[in-house]
Design a binder for these strands. Sequence first.
DNA 1: GTCTATATTCTGATAGAC
DNA 2: GTCTATCAGAATATAGAC
Lengths: 200, 200
Amino acid sequence: MARTTGSHSDITGPRVRAAALKLFARDGFAAVSMRQIAREVGVQAGALYNYTPDKQTLLFDLMRTHMEELLEALPAPADASVMDRLEEFVRFHIAFHHERPDAVFIAYMELRSLEPENFARIEALRRRYETALEDILAAGAAQDVFVVADTKITTLAVIAMLTGVTTWFRAGGRLSLGAVQDQYWDMVRRMVTRPPGGTV
Amino acid sequence: MARTTGSHSDITGPRVRAAALKLFARDGFAAVSMRQIAREVGVQAGALYNYTPDKQTLLFDLMRTHMEELLEALPAPADASVMDRLEEFVRFHIAFHHERPDAVFIAYMELRSLEPENFARIEALRRRYETALEDILAAGAAQDVFVVADTKITTLAVIAMLTGVTTWFRAGGRLSLGAVQDQYWDMVRRMVTRPPGGTV
DNA sequence: GTCTATATTCTGATAGAC
DNA sequence: GTCTATCAGAATATAGAC
């Protein structure tokens, strides 16, 4: 119970964010109190305010950091074929989201907990990510490599499908990450292409 | 402000559930207070407890009702072809969920707000629904009509993809409900089949 | 069946000692 | 930088009048 004195700013800051990430993901932003976060970190509630001006900003910073890391890690448009670029996107999305289940969960479950200004900023980052996929689909459609009736709808459909993986996939289960990536790539590929010789 | 006396049990009960459904969907279970629900209905907070023993039960009843209605409306296994049964499922899912965006949203956003026993009961209903789709896919795979590497994964992928529609589709927008159903059915069909003559 | 009033607990956030 | 103590308000739920 002690821990009465000492400087821990370099350590405590990340621990506050880690605790908030874990608890927000498990119970939801509104259901988690600052005291719960403090207890998880091992400090008193008042000490949290050395690391965030308020609870809302704590949530926003978690979401913004996640989206920025996602965009930074996203493979840049290469001069590879559209088929290879799509495959790369699918595998990237599954792998990246698998490594950060809590952040992913928060990023699209807690959008409604954001105040309007913060919501707009996160939404803008999310759209940039969607656009990366939409660009690939549009390029493939233009080249007649993909059969896509509506690139916007297909973008949303593919992302919804891929993000759903995080709700059930756990390492060490029946399937390896690679096997899951293989299967989803197979489904996405068939979804947007028509094999040579097809009659429909 | 009056409304001081009178019997309204037949009217007020449904209005309490409607208000809770709306507010839970918009702000989340934990973020909505009983006072807010009461204000929406036009009664005092204490009066709500004539219609629900507590807030948790109110949420549970909303979710259970939704899942039961979903299962009841689900087309029964017919002796139609597996292809027709799959198409029927896809169109049904989109149409049914489109009619009840609030209930759908709550049903899979607020699972974590349920106490363990209630969670188990809702989860059981959800699994029955998934099984209906999985049965169709398994039957189609057995008949070599569908190409499905893993029926469980494909089931989850299709449901995630279809449910995602509710996050963006609004009647009166760019696309009609029928057009959306057509496009999703096209994507799902390609996802699980290989056209005759395909070489891969 | 709804009201008013209230018990009890918890909330986010701040002040000041160390 | 963390603690203790506290403020002001809101939370769920209940009791009893009408």
